[in-house]
Design a protein around this nucleic acid. Structure first.
Lengths: 198, 198
DNA sequence: TTGCTCCTCACGTCACGTGAGGTGGC
DNA sequence: TTGCTCCTCACGTCACGTGAGGTGGC
């Protein structure tokens, strides 16, 4: 019989607990005017009503779609961009983010694969590897390429025969420009290049 | 005959131009001690040597792998984590980012698809849509579900028959839980649900 | 009456962008 | 000598986290 009675109010900590947000987030939303509790007690304690709770759920949902708090405020005020455009924009954004992340992932897998062929991968080895790989992929000015080649030549003059052998092997492996799918294949190639481990 | 002569130095603007970084970024790297130019003129102007330029390229490469400037400083100092672990960690991070972005993308496509069935998609429509969809997917406490149901009941009592029809249709569409692959299929279904447009 | 919760500042984060106001070098 | 480049502050960004120091309510 009490089911349709006036609903309760929520203290900030209760609301935080119920929604998984932090108290600080609720404070922040209040500070920027995104979600001000409908009431305050005499001592200034926030009292959220069910209307506030509903708005909070809307905020969470829109935040989940990647909107900034300012954008959310605009949407809820009805002063934002047209909904379809808004979502299409978010779609473009996330599509671009995925493309960038995919490229990064591919590069990481590639470097990790090359690194697995090194016996003792020091930070120096890592940097050399990355330098070589990124050098291949970035477009450098002819001047920069000349300088890099010179630098390598000078460096090579100070290397031992053993280090030189290791480097040329590394180059060969990198030149293969492995894709993730070729990692298994690389294992075979490794067996052909290296002395048998047993 | 001048090929092996001592290399030139770079002014901050020249280096920025050559690398595509901003002057402010170079200033910033200097401020935090990540890349201090080897020299300064009497008036305090930065003079970068080829050694500095090389370090800058290493910084760029590591930044491209998603490392923070603090992490890059550690790696270049040789005091960072073991390279393989470092890259594996970055790989885990980016893999997780891709997973999150993929889910977001899927949700956006789904909401956009549902929105395409609405004649006049107001901000209110958008919010209702998103509320329904996120409600389905988020786990709510039984208490929250009861409150939401009550709220909907109260709201429904104030709706016109037309609005109710539109809502039930919307629900049906959302219940179908469309994946991107099903968008074409949805177009057919739309034709079946809606009166013929001609 | 003792905690637990609440309150308001206010600084810190990360990697710079963006002026402000003033000098140096070809 | 006129610009163009350089310099050093120093605030702003975004969404809060993290104390600091002090009261309120079951």
């Amino acid at each position: 019989v009490n089911a349709t009675a006036e609903s309760r109010t929520w203290r900030v900590g209760e609301l935080a607990e119920a929604t998984g947000l932090t108290v600080r987030e609720l404070h922040h939303y209040d500070e920027i005017g995104l979600l001000a509790p409908s009431g305050r007690t005499g001592a200034g304690h926030r009292r959220y009503t069910d209307v506030d709770v509903r708005r909070l759920h809307q905020i969470r949902a829109l935040r989940g779609f990647g909107l900034s708090l300012a954008e959310i405020a605009d949407v809820l005020a009805g002063t934002g961009p047209e909904p379809r455009q808004l979502l299409r924009h978010q779609l473009d954004e996330v599509t671009e983010r995925i493309a960038v992340a995919d490229r990064l992932r591919r590069d990481l897998v590639r470097v990790l694969g090359a690194l697995d062929n090194r016996v003792e991968p020091s930070a120096t080895t890592l940097i050399e590897l990355i330098e070589v790989m990124t050098t291949v992929e970035n477009k450098l000015t002819p001047q920069q390429v000349r300088e890099m080649t010179e630098r390598r030549t000078r460096m090579a003059e100070q290397l031992t025969a053993e280090e030189l052998a290791a480097m040329s092997q590394r180059r060969a492996e990198l030149a293969a420009r492995l894709t993730p799918e070729e990692l298994a294949e690389m294992a075979d190639r490794r067996a052909a290049y290296l002395p048998s481990p047993d």
